[in-house]
């Protein structure tokens, strides 16, 4: 089965430790490297202190890339994507459970996958449709598919945020696709600047050294016209039309 969707990318934002400006990302895109381990978190001082105090780094990353894109756009649907989610919070909760300790209500309530969009809704007074996705290796494409459906229903724009937190060390044997924490936000609008199509594919496909969202960012920054991503039996092709 083949399918094709069209859309435009009006704006983007991205964050990783030490990579904040377009220039930072441009330099990284030309010569991508694994970033040194860091506890750095993005600045979210645009939020009142009482609101931002509970935000994990994952939430801060999502807010820092999403907030500027949502500025001046009320009624903006949001598609939030993260494969692994709030692993540091989950791990803290599991440690308490293992030690027979009571669980922190804050950690518990904010560990669920839709916590970030809940906070987003509260802090922005935003009541548009929001979705939290956890797909495996091609969550970005599934998120774009969701966004395209919302655009097709008449939304003038859809905000897509994809982010991954560095999981605690204990998960290292199972999680090999987060070389460093990162977040990317895309403001998607109706249009045909970009085309995404899906083809079925049998057999092996070469993997990438970088999270797919960052490969797409390199495509955007280096003015390349195509970006391909394969996961299981699915091959996604991003094609820039103009």
């Amino acid at each position: 089965m083949n399918f094709v969707i069209n859309f435009s990318i009006a704006q983007w934002r991205a964050w990783a430790p030490g990579l904040e400006s377009v220039d930072d990302w441009q330099a990284w895109s030309r010569q991508p490297v694994v970033l040194p381990a860091s506890d750095a978190a993005p600045d979210v001082s645009f939020l009142p202190a009482m609101q931002r105090r509970r935000l994990s780094r994952l939430a801060r990353m999502a807010f820092s890339v999403g907030w500027p894109l949502a500025e001046g756009r009320p009624d903006l649907p949001l598609v939030f994507i993260s494969r692994h989610g709030e692993t540091p919070r989950t791990f803290e909760i599991l440690k308490d459970l293992a030690a027979d300790q009571p669980l922190s209500p804050t950690q518990f309530s904010l560990s669920v996958h839709n916590a970030v969009i809940g906070l987003w809704s509260i802090m922005r007074g935003e009541t548009s449709e929001m979705t939290a996705l956890a797909a495996t290796g091609d969550g970005l494409e599934h998120g774009v598919l969701e966004a395209a459906a919302l655009l097709n229903e008449g939304s003038p724009a859809v905000l897509l945020v994809i982010t991954e937190e560095q999981p605690p060390q204990v998960y290292a044997p199972w999680v090999d696709d987060v070389p460093f924490p990162y977040a990317m936000g895309l403001l998607l609008t109706p249009g045909d600047d970009w085309r995404l199509d899906l083809c079925a594919q049998a057999g092996q496909w070469p993997g990438s050294d970088w999270p797919h969202a960052l490969d797409l960012l390199r495509t955007l920054l280096n003015d390349e016209t195509t970006c391909q991503h394969a996961w299981k039996n699915r091959v996604w092709t991003w094609q820039r039309n103009r």
């Binding site: 509970r54 009571p102 209500p105 804050t106």
Partner: peptide
């Protein structure tokens, strides 16, 4: 101070501990 219901639960837990 402006604390909310999640704070109440968290503070209750902290006091007990």
């Amino acid at each position: 101070l402006g604390l909310d219901s999640v704070d109440a639960l968290e503070l209750g837990l902290a006091i007990q501990k």
